[in-house]
Design a protein around this nucleic acid. Structure first.
Length: 107
DNA sequence: AGTTTGACTGGAG
DNA sequence: CCTCCAGCCAAAC
């Protein structure tokens, strides 16, 4: 993967994450797909973790497939709850209700 | 340069 | 829902 592609991918990820509407959540795989690199889901997490200390991206709206939040980041749960996101009894996001469909906002 | 790890995913048990 | 396994790519060791 060339450096230019990395930069492009990172930019795409930032745009997508920033486009997630309040009260909705998306997964790494979904973002990677929208960015144009469907199998780079791992890089999405790496990039997000990297930019989280430099940019104000709502990375708290990004969860993994099982609706889990970022490890070691307890406040994320409060942030999502404040945005209207409901949680399961175990503390995971109810992704079944808040799963973001990009087509909704694309229209 | 080879091995391990990780803010991942999907399938199987 | 949880754990384990295999596939995946880049960064850290």
């Amino acid at each position: 993967m060339d450096e230019s592609e990395k930069e492009e991918f990172e930019t795409a990820v930032c745009e997508i994450v920033a486009a997630i509407p309040k009260g909705k959540v998306s997964s790494y795989g979904e973002i990677a797909r929208l960015a144009g690199y469907s199998h780079y889901h791992r890089m999405v997490g790496r990039i997000l973790h990297g930019v989280s200390r430099s940019m104000g991206l709502p990375c708290h709206r990004v969860v993994n497939s099982r609706g889990r939040l970022m490890p070691g980041w307890i406040a994320q749960r409060e942030l999502l709850r404040d945005e209207g996101v409901t949680f399961k009894a175990n503390g995971f996001v109810d992704i079944g209700k808040h799963d973001w469909n990009p087509m909704e906002t694309a229209e």
